[in-house]
Computed example of a mutant assay.
Amino acid sequence: MSAVRYESYTRARAHLKDLLDAADEGRVATIRRDSGHAAVVDAERLRHHLMAVCPSRAEVVAEAGGWSVFLPGLPLAADGATLDSAIEEMVEVLREYAEDWQERLRTVPNHEGNWGLVQLIGLSDDESLRAWLVGTER
């Protein structure tokens, strides 16, 4: 089977099942709309790809009887009495960052390049984000 490409929103809407089937099978599925060009992709495939190209590089530090987790290059950090609680807090921090990015940070020069991270966060459940942070995600 080949790629599925629709040159208008109207045609794509009429063939939505074909678009979703193609995405599910990992085939190229695209839609043109005015000057825009969008891809329809399987969310789980995209999530796994983003995990491969966006490693967390989380750093963990034991300090003052507790733990701190931070992501170098990003204004994100979390603390906890235990390592598990610090990781749980970081998952919450990531979720808040993704929300803030979508609301206002996506056009800020030092944040606009974090699109992939935000997509990864949005496509992941908490367990997957924990595994990504500690480097155990498959």
Rank of each mutant, 00 (worst) to 15 (best):
M1H: 15
S2L: 09
S2Q: 12
A3T: 07
R5A: 06
Y6F: 11
Y6W: 08
Y9V: 02
T10C: 03
T10P: 04
R11G: 07
A12V: 03
A12C: 11
A14Q: 09
L16R: 13
D18K: 11
D18A: 15
L20K: 04
D21H: 03
A22H: 01
A23D: 08
D24L: 12
D24H: 11
E25W: 07
E25Y: 01
E25G: 04
E25A: 11
G26T: 14
G26A: 12
V28I: 15
V28Q: 13
A29D: 03
T30C: 09
T30F: 02
R33A: 06
D34R: 13
S35W: 14
S35E: 12
S35K: 15
G36D: 14
G36V: 02
G36E: 12
V40H: 07
V40S: 01
A43G: 12
A43Y: 00
R45F: 00
H48P: 04
H48F: 10
L50N: 12
L50D: 02
L50W: 08
M51L: 11
C54W: 08
C54P: 01
S56P: 10
S56Q: 05
R57M: 13
R57C: 15
R57F: 05
E59L: 13
E59F: 07
E59G: 05
V60C: 01
V61R: 14
V61K: 13
A62S: 12
A62I: 00
A62Y: 02
A62V: 03
E63F: 05
G65N: 03
G66E: 03
S68D: 09
S68F: 07
V69P: 00
F70C: 11
P72C: 10
P72T: 10
G73P: 14
G73A: 14
G73S: 11
A77G: 07
A77Q: 15
A77R: 15
A78F: 10
D79E: 14
L83Q: 15
L83M: 15
D84L: 12
D84V: 05
A86C: 09
I87E: 09
E89Q: 15
V91G: 08
V93L: 04
L94K: 06
L94E: 04
L94Y: 06
R95G: 01
Y97V: 06
Y97Q: 06
E99I: 09
D100P: 03
E103W: 07
R104Y: 06
R104L: 06
L105N: 00
L105G: 00
R106F: 05
T107R: 13
V108Q: 02
P109R: 11
E112N: 02
G113A: 09
G113I: 03
G116A: 13
V118G: 02
V118M: 02
V118N: 00
Q119V: 02
L120T: 02
L120W: 00
S124T: 00
D125L: 05
D125K: 10
D125M: 06
D126C: 05
L129R: 05
R130E: 04
R130N: 06
A131T: 00
L133D: 02
L133C: 04
L133R: 01
G135E: 06
E137I: 08
R138Y: 00
R138Q: 06
